[in-house]
Design a protein around this nucleic acid. Structure first.
Lengths: 197, 197
DNA sequence: ACCTGAACACCGTTCAAGT
DNA sequence: ACCTGAACACCGTTCAAGT
């Protein structure tokens, strides 16, 4: 009864934080606006001030996921050395690690359910990731470690492999052990796929 | 009031058929056991005789999806000629076409939500697909069009690329046009990734 | 064996009203 | 501006009872 009241405008942030926590711990099916409101000590109608819809909250969650993935990939790039293969390897690693550490969130990010309003922002976020892959490929072309040709026609398949591997790891098609032991094979295959001649 | 009664045991099949229809037409959020029952002129408690859970129905739907994908891939193999690249190309085509024609179903098939009971059967279904990719790769090795090495270390990345591309097409990361125009680039990249030397 | 009808606890969403 | 409380229509699930 003496719980915080959240008149400060941080209810929105609190809802997102808590939602991601229950998504991670109990899965997407357990996400309920009413329970979120209960957990935060707020009336069940309060969330509607910040998210017009349950879908709107899910959209915001997915968008936050893209932003964090973006940061993780940027960080991996900044941490890498000069060598192209190291940089590419770090990029792949960062994506796969994020996927495995945020399985439910990744599932949500790439789910089909997003409303057309949010899809725009989500697709833009996805394209930012694709652009990062494109920069990496362009670097590789300049150093001669990636074959000539339109950047997108190389970066798209590379990114696609990356995502497929992460998706298989997340959905359980690959077990945790297979995902770990298969990384090198996937990376070697990616190098072959984009390498010269 | 004079609707069919389904005492024949075909309620289970009717539920699945109808469920897939509304999944396709109105999306996963619109799937409700009660509405399904209503649509089929049956009491709202009737489905529970055939599916202990809503999740059990979703699991069955996903499993049926894997079976149909399996058939589509088998059919593509039987329809293909002798040449390895044609056979591989047909395999990739069949997977991508299935994905684009059954977007919501593919999303469900690879979703993370499946109960541990069903996961076993679903993972087995996924592994059957992987085995088909493995056979194809082994053929390519025999004809010298795929490089030497453990079959799985080549088939897994190939299948992964396939799935990543399909997943991007389904989730809207790639527009319909990009998915169409990007196919050749992806296929060329797959050939490079598994090719010799 | 298969289905019905009522019951229960829980949703998402809306809206007047409060502060 | 932000939140509450009541209300509405809809769920999934269970269980006695019917055929």
């Amino acid at each position: 009864m003496h719980t915080r009241r959240y008149h400060h405008g941080d209810l929105r942030a609190a809802l997102l934080t808590r939602a991601e926590q229950t998504l991670r711990e109990k899965g997407p099916g357990a996400l309920s606006l009413r329970e979120l409101a209960r957990d935060l000590g707020v009336s069940h109608a309060a969330p509607s001030r910040h998210f017009k819809d349950k879908q709107a909250l899910l959209d915001a969650l997915a968008l936050a996921g893209f932003e964090r993935l973006d940061e993780a990939l940027s960080a991996s790039r900044d941490a890498a050395g000069e060598a192209f293969t190291d940089r590419l390897r770090g990029f792949v690693r960062a994506y796969v690690d994020f996927a495995r550490a945020n399985a439910e969130l990744l599932d949500l990010m790439y789910t089909i359910k997003h409303g057309p309003a949010a899809s725009e922002a989500l697709i833009a976020a996805g394209q930012r990731l694709g652009a990062m892959a494109g920069e990496l490929v362009a670097e590789g072309q300049r150093s001669g470690e990636v074959r000539e040709g339109p950047v997108d026609s190389i970066a798209m398949p590379v990114f696609t492999t990356l995502h497929g591997f992460a998706s298989f790891a997340v959905s359980g098609v690959l077990s945790a052990e297979e995902a770990t032991s298969g990384f090198d094979a996937v990376f070697a295959y990616i190098l072959r796929g984009c390498g010269p001649s």
